[in-house]
Design a protein around this nucleic acid. Structure first.
Length: 1040
RNA sequence: GGGCGUGUAGCUCAGUUGGUUAGAGCGCGUCCCUGAUAAGGACGAGGUCCCAGGUUCGAUUCCUGGCACGCCCA
C-alpha cells in the first residue's frame, strides 16, 4: 500500500515536511558523501552582503545555484557547496555608523577605529539567521556550517598572499585618484556616496585669458572658462578638442587677438561688428602652442603651460578651450599625467591654501574665489564674469560642497593583462553567450588599472609597511607568520585597528602600515583561494580543482565579481577562474519598475512561498527569460500559473495512480517497466525518453529555461492524453494483464519523471518519490542517478503515429463543432486519408483511440483522397530557393498551373520534370507542397497531407445510442448530486417516451455498467425531469 | 556620451540557421466534460512581428539609421 494521497494538498505544508525529512536524514550531506570517490564538480558561491533580507534577485540566483549542482550531483559528481558572506565594506560601515551615531571619518577616528570595527564585526551576523532560513526554505542545498566569511583570519591571510603575489609581479603601484572629498570631514568619499546629495547652487563663472607665446599672431590670448576660479592658481595646461573648429578674432574694443571655438563666438559678442575674424583653425593645428602662466606660483613646474589636445573637450559651454588643474579634475589629471606634467595640490586637509600659494594661504579655497577674481580683474586678465546655477554634489553628513581632488591610491596594473584576460575569457562558456562575447569581452578589452585602496576602516588591510623616513622603502607581507617575525608580536586579528598598532624597526628605521584598506571586490575576487586558505592549506586539492566548473550571478556582476575573479586568476594562475557561468537578469516589480520597499510594489517573498510553495516560485523564475540575463517583471500570477499548469497536474497524476493502485492493492515488486505491449504505454515511455534527452542536452549547455520547457509538453501529454486515454484501463474490475501493464508503466513514468524533475522542483519530486519508492531504492530522489538519455528507449515512429492521431482528433472535433453534432452523439464512420496511411494501418490500436475519442463506430485509413478533396500545389520555396534562386517565382507560377495529372503525381511522391520559360527543371516531391481543399458539401477537414471526413448521417440505431449516452450522463450527474460514492451500486427508474424507453432497453447492459446500476425499470416515478435530445425524461436514482 | 540588451496578440512570453498561412499561456466569448484535477478540454475573436531605408527571387528574421525601454559605464 502507498500512503493515501489527497488530490487537494497544501503544497507549502508538504514542502515543510520534505524539509524536515532532509534535516532529519542529513540528505544534503549524504548527497555529497555518497559521491566521495567521484570526480568533483566545483562550484563557487559569490558572497552577498548580508546587510538586509534576501530579495528576489537573491532567490533567483540561489535557485540557479541549486539546480545546477543538484543536477551535476545526480549525474555522478561530488558537488560541495559552501555559502559565503561578504562582511566588509561600506554597506556594513554605514549600518555601524548609524548604530553608533557617528557622522563621517573624523567621528569614527575620534570614537576609536577599534570601537567602530568591533561594532561592524558584531553587526555582520545580524541577518545571517534570516538568510539561512529563507535560503533553506527555497530548497537550496548549501552548507551554512562550513561557510566562509571574508572577515575570517584565514580568509584575510590569503588576501595578503594574493596581494603579495601581485606585488612580486610589480603590479602594485601608488598613484592618485580624483575623488570627491569632504573638507569638513577631512576624508574622501566614494562616488556612490557623493551621488546621494546633489543641491542646486550658484557658482561664479569666469572667462579669463592666457597669453599665447608662439602663435602666428602677436598679442594673442586663449580664452578659458571655469566655474572654479580657485583652481586657477593650480593651472598647469590648457586643452583643445582636436576636431573642434577654432577661430582667431581681433577684438575691436581692446585690439587684442582672442582664440576660441568658432561656435562659441555668439556668447561673447552680441554683434558681429564687435570683432574682426582673422583665421580659422582645426583644434589639431593648435598643437604645440605654449602660454604664459596666469600666476607665478608654479611657473617652474616642468613640461607645463602648453596647449594639449583631447576629445573630451566640448563646445556646450565655455570657450572650447579648457583650463586644466590636474589635482582637481579627472580629465585634467589624466591628460596632464599623459603629458608628463604631474600635478600640484596647494590645499591642506581642510582645503585651505597652503604656503605654496602665499597670497591666499590659510583661506578656504572656495572663499578665495572672490579675491582671485579681483586679482585677475586688476591684472586685466578677466574677460567676462557671471554666475551659474547648477546642481553640485554635497557631503550628505555635513551638507557642505564636496571638492574633487587627487587622493593617494594604490593600483593594480591591469592594462597589460588585457590580451591574456580575453584569451582566458574565450575559454569560458557563458549563458547567454553574448554577455561573455560582447559585454564582458568589450569591458576586458578596455580594462583600466584597478584602484584597490579605500580610505575606510572595516576591511582587509593592505599588507604594506612603509619606512617613515623613506616612503619608497616598503615591505610587503605575504603571511601573518612573516609579520610576526618582523614585529615580534603575536597577531590574532588582521583588521585595521589591530594592524595599525603593529610597527617595527628595521636597520634603524621605523615602519608603519599604509593606512588604506582594500576594496572589497579584491576580497570577493580572491574567494577561490581565500575560502580554502590557499596556499597555507589545501594546496594540492585547490590546484587540482581550479578553475571552478560553475558560477552564477546577476548581470550587474559583469564589472564586479566576474571581472575581479578574471583579473586575479589571470594574474596569479594564467587561467580563468570559472569554466561555465549563468548570468541572470534583474527581477523587476510587476509594473516594470525596480522593486522598492518604500512603494511596496511587490509581494513579500515569504508570502509567495507560503501561498504557493517554493517549487512553484522556482519553476516560475526558471521558466522565464530572466535566466538569460533579461529582466523579469515579477508577477504573483505567474507563480500561481506555474502551480496550476505544472505542479497540480503532476500531483494529480500521482494522486490518481496512488488511489487506484491502493484500490487494487497493486505493488511495484516484480513489475517490469518499459516492456508493455500497449501502444499508449510504449508511447508515454518514448515521450519520457525524449524528455530526458531534451533536459539533459539543455542542462549540459547550462540553458535552464530550455531545460524546463519540455516538462510543460510532457506533463500535458501525460495528463491530457496518456492518463485520460488510459483511465478505463485502471477501472476495470478484473485484474488482467493490460491493467498490470498500465500500473507498471504509470509507476515507472512517475518515478523517472521525479528524477528528471528533482533538480528543478526538489520538494514535490521528493514527496512523490518517497511514497512510490521500494526499499531497494535510495531513500531520497536526490540520491538517485539522473536517468540516462538513451536513444534506445525512443520510438520515433510511434511518436509520429501518435502525433497524427492527435491531429486527426483535433480535426474530427472541429468537424463535429462545424456541423453542430456533439461528441456524445455516436456517428458511423470516420475516414482518414493520408500519404502516411500505411504508417497508420500498421496499428489497429490507433483506430481504437480515434474511435473512442471522437465517438465513431468505425475508423478507416485510406489513401484515396479523390472523392473528398481537390488538390492544389505551390512551390516549396525553402528547398527550391537554394537550388534555383531567382527562378523560383517562375517555377511557382508553373506549379500553380499544374494539371490534375501532375498534381496526382506530386501528391503520390513522384518526381516531375517541369518545362517553363524555355528551361527544364527537375523537381522532387519535396519541392512541391500539395494542399487539399475539402470538396463542397462534405464534412471534410484537411491539413497538410491529412484529410479527415466524417459521416454525419444518423439512423435509428445511432439516435438510440445517442439517447442512451445522454441518459448515462444525466444519471451520473444525479449520482454526484445525491452524494453517492464512485463505487456505490444503484437502482434506476426512468419515466420517458417510447424513444428513450427503447434506447434504455437496447443498451441495458451498457447503461448498467456505466452507471453501476443493478436494475433499470421504465415506470412512472418521482424524480428529476431532464431533457434528452428533446425527449423529456424523469429519472430516479436509489442507492442499492 | 559609450558598451550591451530588449521591442512579436489586451497582458506575460515562445519562435525565426531568411521561405510566402507567426505560436503558447492568461484574459475575453461560445460550448463540452466532470468516476484524477485549488479543475480539465474544445472551438473562436484578437497581430502593419517598433519605424524607415538597404541586401535578396523572398525580410518579422540579416545590414544601416532612427525611436522607446532597461542594465552597466562615463
Amino acid at each position: 500500500m502507498f500512503k493515501p494521497v489527497s488530490s487537494k494538498t497544501d503544497f507549502a505544508q508538504m514542502e515543510e515536511g520534505v524539509l524536515a525529512f532532509w534535516r532529519e536524514h542529513g540528505t544534503f550531506k549524504k548527497s555529497i558523501e555518497n559521491r566521495s570517490d567521484a570526480a568533483e564538480f566545483v562550484f563557487y558561491d559569490g558572497p552577498p552582503f548580508a546587510t538586509g533580507l534576501p530579495h528576489y534577485g537573491h532567490l533567483l540566483a540561489g535557485t540557479i545555484k541549486d539546480i545546477v549542482p543538484r543536477y551535476q550531483a545526480m549525474r555522478g559528481h561530488r558537488v560541495e557547496r559552501r555559502f559565503g558572506w561578504d562582511c566588509h565594506g561600506l554597506p556594513i560601515e554605514a549600518l555601524a555608523q548609524e548604530a553608533l551615531g557617528l557622522a563621517g571619518a573624523p567621528a569614527i577616528k575620534e570614537a576609536g577605529v577599534d570601537v567602530f570595527n568591533e561594532q561592524c564585526r558584531s553587526m555582520v551576523t545580524t541577518y545571517v539567521e534570516e538568510w539561512e532560513k529563507t535560503v533553506t526554505r527555497m530548497g537550496r542545498w548549501v552548507d551554512f556550517q562550513n561557510d566562509y566569511k571574508t572577515m575570517d583570519k584565514d580568509f584575510m591571510e590569503t588576501i595578503w598572499w594574493v596581494f603579495s603575489e601581485l606585488w612580486k609581479q610589480g603590479r602594485i603601484y601608488k598613484a592618485h585618484r580624483i575623488m570627491p572629498y569632504s573638507w569638513k570631514l577631512n576624508t574622501p568619499l566614494s562616488n556612490f556616496e557623493a551621488g546621494r546629495n546633489y543641491q542646486d547652487v550658484q557658482d561664479p563663472a569666469v572667462t579669463v585669458r592666457v597669453k599665447l607665446n608662439n602663435f602666428e599672431f602677436d598679442n594673442a590670448f586663449a580664452l578659458l572658462w571655469t566655474t572654479t576660479p580657485w583652481t586657477l592658481p593650480s593651472n598647469l595646461a590648457i586643452c583643445a578638442g582636436p576636431d573642434i573648429d577654432y577661430i582667431a578674432v581681433r577684438d575691436k574694443k581692446s585690439d587684442d587677438i582672442f582664440l576660441l571655438a568658432e561656435s562659441r563666438l555668439g556668447t561673447y559678442y552680441k554683434e558681429e561688428g564687435q570683432y574682426e575674424p582673422l583665421k580659422k583653425f582645426k583644434g589639431i593645428e593648435l598643437d604645440g602652442l605654449t602660454y604664459e602662466p596666469l600666476f607665478d606660483f608654479f611657473k617652474d613646474n616642468p613640461n607645463s603651460f602648453r596647449l594639449l589636445l583631447d576629445p573630451f573637450v566640448t563646445t556646450e559651454d565655455g570657450t572650447g578651450i579648457v583650463h586644466l588643474a590636474p589635482a582637481y579634475g579627472e580629465d585634467d589629471y589624466r591628460i596632464c599625467m599623459d603629458a608628463s606634467i604631474g600635478f600640484v595640490d596647494p590645499l591642506d586637509a581642510d582645503c585651505k591654501f597652503t604656503a605654496q600659494v602665499p597670497d591666499w594661504a590659510g583661506q578656504f579655497c572656495k572663499d578665495a574665489d572672490k579675491a582671485i577674481i579681483q586679482r585677475l580683474k586688476d591684472e586685466g586678465k578677466l574677460i567676462h564674469q557671471s554666475t551659474i546655477q547648477h546642481s553640485y554634489p554635497f557631503c550628505e553628513r555635513t551638507d557642505t560642497p564636496l571638492i574633487y581632488r587627487a587622493i593617494d591610491a594604490w593600483y593594480v596594473r591591469v592594462e597589460d593583462l588585457r590580451e591574456e584576460m580575453l584569451a582566458n575569457n574565450a575559454q569560458v562558456h557563458w549563458m547567454p553567450e553574448y554577455v561573455g562575447d560582447k559585454r564582458f569581452a568589450n569591458w576586458l578589452a578596455e580594462a583600466r588599472d584597478w584602484n584597490i585602496s579605500r580610505n575606510r576602516f572595516w576591511g582587509s588591510c593592505i599588507p604594506l609597511w612603509i619606512n617613515v623616513d623613506n616612503p619608497d622603502d616598503r615591505i610587503c607581507f605575504s603571511s601573518v607568520a612573516e609579520l610576526e617575525k618582523f614585529s615580534g608580536r603575536k597577531i590574532n586579528d588582521l583588521h585595521k585597528h589591530t594592524l595599525d598598532e603593529v610597527t617595527f624597526v628595521k636597520d634603524g628605521h621605523l615602519y608603519r602600515r599604509t593606512p588604506e584598506v582594500l576594496d572589497c571586490w579584491f576580497e570577493s575576487g580572491s574567494m577561490p583561494y581565500a575560502q580554502q586558505h590557499y596556499p597555507f592549506e589545501n594546496k594540492a586539492h585547490f590546484e587540482a580543482n581550479f578553475p571552478a566548473h560553475f558560477i552564477a550571478e546577476g548581470l550587474d556582476q559583469t564589472r564586479g565579481w566576474f571581472y575581479t575573479l578574471m583579473v586575479l586568476s589571470t594574474a596569479l594562475f594564467k587561467k580563468p577562474a570559472f569554466r561555465n557561468v549563468v548570468v541572470n537578469g534583474l527581477v523587476l516589480a510587476e509594473d516594470g519598475h525596480k522593486m522598492s520597499k518604500r512603494l511596496k510594489n511587490y509581494p513579500d517573498p515569504l508570502h509567495v512561498i507560503h501561498e504557493y510553495g517554493a517549487d512553484a516560485l522556482r519553476l516560475y523564475m526558471i521558466n522565464s527569460p530572466v535566466v538569460k540575463a533579461e529582466s523579469l517583471r515579477f508577477s504573483e500570477k505567474g507563480v500561481k500559473h506555474a502551480l496550476r499548469h505544472l505542479l497540480i497536474p503532476l500531483w494529480n497524476s500521482y494522486s490518481f495512480f496512488v488511489t487506484y493502485a491502493n484500490i487494487d492493492t497493486w505493488t511495484p515488486e516484480g513489475s517490469k517497466p518499459g516492456q508493455s505491449s500497449n501502444l499508449l504505454d510504449r508511447w508515454i515511455e518514448s515521450s519520457l525518453a525524449n524528455l530526458c534527452q531534451e533536459v539533459t542536452a539543455a542542462m549540459d549547455n547550462y540553458d535552464l529555461q530550455r531545460a524546463v520547457r519540455p516538462f510543460v509538453t510532457f506533463i500535458e501529454d501525460l495528463t491530457n492524453w496518456y492518463i485520460r486515454r488510459s483511465r478505463r484501463r485502471f477501472w476495470k474490475s478484473d485484474d488482467d494483464f493490460d491493467k498490470q501493464q498500465a500500473y507498471a508503466t504509470l509507476y515507472h513514468v512517475l518515478i523517472e519523471l521525479c528524477k528528471i524533475a528533482a533538480p528543478f522542483i526538489p520538494f514535490i519530486a521528493e514527496e512523490i518519490y518517497r511514497n512510490l519508492r521500494t526499499d531497494n531504492m535510495p531513500e531520497s530522489v536526490h540520491l538517485c542517478d539522473f536517468p540516462t538519455a538513451a536513444d534506445a528507449r525512443r520510438d520515433p515512429k510511434l511518436e509520429q503515429q501518435m502525433r497524427i492521431v492527435m491531429d486527426v482528433v483535433v480535426m474530427g472535433r472541429q468537424l463535429r463543432k462545424d456541423h453542430d453534432v456533439k461528441v456524445r452523439q455516436p456517428l458511423r464512420r470516420l475516414d482518414v486519408v493520408s500519404r502516411d496511411s500505411e504508417l497508420l494501418n500498421q496499428v489497429d490500436e490507433l483506430k481504437e483511440i480515434i474511435a473512442e475519442e471522437l465517438n465513431v463506430h468505425q475508423v478507416v485509413f485510406g489513401d484515396d483522397e479523390s472523392g473528398l478533396a481537390t488538390l492544389s500545389a505551390k512551390a516549396n520555396f525553402k528547398t527550391l530557393g537554394p537550388k534555383f534562386g531567382k527562378k523560383v517565382q517562375l517555377i511557382n507560377m508553373a506549379i500553380q498551373k499544374f494539371s490534375a495529372q501532375d498534381l496526382q503525381r506530386a501528391a503520390s511522391g513522384g518526381e516531375l520534370v517541369l518545362k517553363t520559360g524555355g528551361e527544364t527543371f527537375e523537381l522532387t516531391a519535396n519541392d512541391i507542397i500539395v494542399e487539399r481543399i475539402p470538396k463542397e458539401g462534405l464534412a471534410v477537414q484537411a491539413q497538410g497531407a491529412l484529410v479527415v471526413a466524417i459521416d454525419l448521417e444518423l439512423d435509428e440505431a445511432l439516435l438510440r445510442e445517442g439517447l442512451a449516452r445522454e441518459l448515462i450522463k444525466e444519471v451520473q450527474q444525479l449520482r454526484k448530486a445525491n452524494g453517492l460514492e464512485v463505487t456505490d451500486r444503484i437502482h434506476l427508474k426512468i419515466a420517458a417516451d417510447e424513444a428513450v424507453n427503447q434506447a434504455a432497453v437496447a443498451f441495458d447492459d451498457y447503461i448498467k455498467a456505466e452507471v453501476l446500476a443493478l436494475s433499470i425499470e421504465t415506470i412512472a416515478t418521482e424524480g428529476e425531469t431532464v431533457d434528452l435530445n428533446g425527449h423529456p425524461c424523469t429519472i430516479a436514482v436509489e442507492k442499492a
